[in-house]
């Protein structure tokens, strides 16, 4: 039946092109749908939250935690409202994940607090005795990479017109302004923390990874 195409490479190429165009449209078109636009009130991540997101990626939290609540009663009972496409508009990349060795984290900011995260990341079994999550004590001593986070924010602002510095958006400003803002945000978080080393580091103008990670966790609502 397709013997004729085998003898006419030009038309064969046209056929291949049409198939790829169709598949491409199916992949690309949904991104322009109204449902994929940022939901009302969604703001881009602050620099500190982005630094926390980097920690989340670096330590591969996605290997055990998802960030996508499916529309099933059992999931919404446990994690809250099911996730909407537009909530991930400023996630580059989104961290949906597909493995739930631990619980979903898409709305963890609604039901966990700074002090809980502090206890939990230091020693997970101290708050959840059956937990198999390893401790992340190095988050308390490693410093978060605020510079890279700022670079990331500037990049998405210029490249994708992510609304930084926009009315009702997230302020970004210059590198120095952004660093000062991140430190202010970190101070607000350490006010609710107990670890003296972390408090001292922030008082000295450094930001440990745990503070950035907690800022990110609290933002997930």
């Amino acid at each position: 039946m397709f013997h004729w195409l085998e003898k006419n490479p030009f038309f064969f190429a046209v056929g291949v092109f049409l198939v790829i165009v169709f598949a491409g449209l199916i992949e690309i078109l949904p991104n322009f749908a109204e449902a994929s636009r940022p939901i009302a009130g969604l703001k881009p991540y602050t620099v500190l939250e982005l630094a926390g997101k980097e920690v989340y990626k670096k330590d591969n939290c996605i290997a055990c935690h998802s960030q996508l609540i499916r529309p099933f009663k059992s999931e919404t009972d446990r994690y809250g409202q099911y996730s909407l496409s537009g909530e991930y508009a400023y996630d580059r990349p989104f961290l949906w994940g597909s493995k739930r060795t631990g619980p979903d984290l898409h709305r963890v900011g609604n039901y966990r607090t700074t002090d809980w995260h502090e206890n939990h990341m230091w020693e997970p079994q101290s708050v959840v005795p059956q937990s198999i999550m390893p401790a992340y004590k190095h988050h308390f001593t490693n410093m978060a990479d605020i510079d890279t986070a700022y670079a990331e924010a500037v990049t998405v602002k210029k490249l994708f017109a992510t609304p930084y510095d926009a009315p009702n958006g997230t302020p970004l400003g210059t590198h120095e302004e952004a660093k000062a803002a991140a430190l202010e945000e970190a101070k607000a978080i350490t006010a609710n923390m107990k670890n003296q080393d972390v408090k001292d580091a922030v008082a000295n103008g450094q930001i440990p990874e745990i503070v950035a990670l907690i800022a990110y966790m609290n933002r997930l609502k």
Binding site: R112, D115, W116, N119, S126, V127, P129
Partner: peptide, 14 residues
């Protein structure tokens, strides 16, 4: 997860 299974607040964490 915060108050502990016996509700004792996990030795002062909650």
């Amino acid at each position: 997860p915060c108050h502990g299974e016996t509700a004792d607040g996990l030795s002062g964490k909650a």
